[in-house]
Each structure stands twice: as C-alpha cells, then as structure tokens.
C-alpha cells in the first residue's frame, strides 16, 4: 500500500473514531431540518445558500481542528519521523476532508431531491464542491499555522467568516444590493464560491462563472504554495511556543 493510501485511510478511520463523521451527519440533519421548516416557493435557492455555508465553514473548521489536535497529541511529530512527506500528508488530509464535506451535502441533496423538488446539475455541483472545498481546506491550514492556541484559531476562523462570508450571504439573501457592492464582492473567494454553486442550478455559463472558476483555481494554487511552504515550520514549532 502506498504511503498516500495509508495516510488517507488513516484519515477516514479517524474521521469515524473521532466522531467527525457523526458530526457531519448531524450537521446535514440540521440542514435538512432548516430546509423542512423554511417555507419558500423555490427550495433550490435556499439549498444553494446552505451548500455555500456548509462547504466554506466545514472545510475550514475540520482541517483546523483535526490538525490542531494532531499537533497537540504529538502525533504530527511521530508522523514526521516516518517516511512520509508533507505533500502526501497535506493531500491525504485535504481529500479526506472533501469526502466529509461531500457526505454532508449528499445527504441534504438526497433529501431535497426526494422530498422536495430540486433541480441542479449534480456533476457541476460536485466539481464546485471539490474546488471550493480544496480552497477552503487550504485556508484552514493557513489559519491553524498562524494560531498559537485553540482560541486564537477559533478567532481566526471567525474573522474569516465575518469578513468573507457574511457580506456574500447578505447579498445572497438580498439584504444588501447595489452594483458597487456586488463588484467589490468579486474580490472575495467566497463570492466566487457562491457564484459557482449558484451556477449549478442551470442557466448559461456566463463570464462571471468562468471568472469565478479561474479565480478559485489560481487561488487554490497560490494557497497550496503557502500551505506547503509553511508546513515544516508549523510541525517543528512546539505547541504553545
């Protein structure tokens, strides 16, 4: 078995043992509850906002929390005196994280499909989740690198959510309008994310969608560079120092 596969299966095993899987499923039931209670003529738009919230926040939180605890438990040290390299570690963790993201959304989607009537491009949504999930997993890595303790990490995540997610959400809900605001929002990776997700409900592929895709692709590569670069320093740094 290759090192990557060992690491990846290890991640899945721990997702189960550390009840991350259970948590994902609970989150999806929470979303289902919301879908059920909310009374809107078109469930699709609401589903999209929900996917947006889930993927952005869960990707960041799951990566941050698991890496934080792995460092605290000392397992990162133990891992890095084994013949693995950081790329294998980062990729196995990111892909496992995507899988947990996909599970939550798949459950909610199945509910929406069966119980309510929803019409989306599933392949498109899958690709969007992979791209957005990867991008935000990397954001999770960078936040945990920069945090000295658990609280600091949570604050870092909060900052990201407030600065990047809330404005996009306000626009989505139609609470803030205006072209200028919309255009400024295009600077945010979260706006690109929500544009991509919304695009999977059909309609033509506009320039905006292409721009959002390119933005996230390039952004993911740039973040990957920093995630890879900062990793060694993070592992070496003693927890709490």
């Amino acid at each position: 078995m290759t090192v990557f596969l060992t690491l990846f299966l290890g991640e899945l095993q721990r997702m189960k043992k550390y009840h991350i899987l259970t948590a994902s499923i609970l989150v999806s039931f929470f979303w289902i509850g919301m879908l059920h209670l909310i009374e809107v003529p078109d469930i699709t738009a609401f589903f999209m906002i929900l996917v947006f919230f889930d993927i952005v926040s869960m990707a960041i939180v799951m990566i941050g929390v698991t890496i934080f605890f792995e460092k605290q438990e000392g397992v990162l040290k133990s891992l890095f005196v084994a013949p693995i390299n950081r790329l294998e570690f980062i990729s196995s963790k990111t892909i496992a994280n995507l899988i947990s993201n996909l599970i939550t959304i798949a459950i909610v989607y199945l509910y929406a499909l069966i119980v309510q009537d929803i019409n989306i491009n599933v392949v498109g949504l899958l690709l969007a989740i992979i791209l957005i999930g990867t991008f935000h997993s990397f954001v999770g890595f960078l936040i945990v690198y920069r945090s000295k303790g658990f609280t600091e990490m949570l604050i870092g995540m909060m900052k990201y959510f407030i600065v990047f997610m809330i404005p996009v959400a306000l626009e989505e809900f139609g609470l803030i309008t205006g072209d200028l605001f919309s255009n400024i929002l295009f600077l945010l990776p979260t706006k690109a994310s929500s544009t991509l997700i919304t695009a999977t409900t059909g309609g033509p592929i506009t320039g905006e969608v292409i721009l959002a895709t390119v933005y996230l692709l390039i952004g993911t590569l740039v973040l990957a560079y920093f995630v890879n670069k900062g990793f060694r320093k993070f592992v070496i740094r003693e927890s709490g120092v």
Binding site: R14, K17, E70, E73, G74, V75, K77, S78
Partner: peptide, 9 residues
C-alpha cells in the same frame, strides 16, 4: 519520544 505521540482516540 519523551512525550506521548499517539492518537488518543
């Protein structure tokens, strides 16, 4: 290692 280095769960 001097310190614990295993997955606690």
């Amino acid at each position: 290692f001097e310190m614990p280095v295993h997955f606690s769960k």
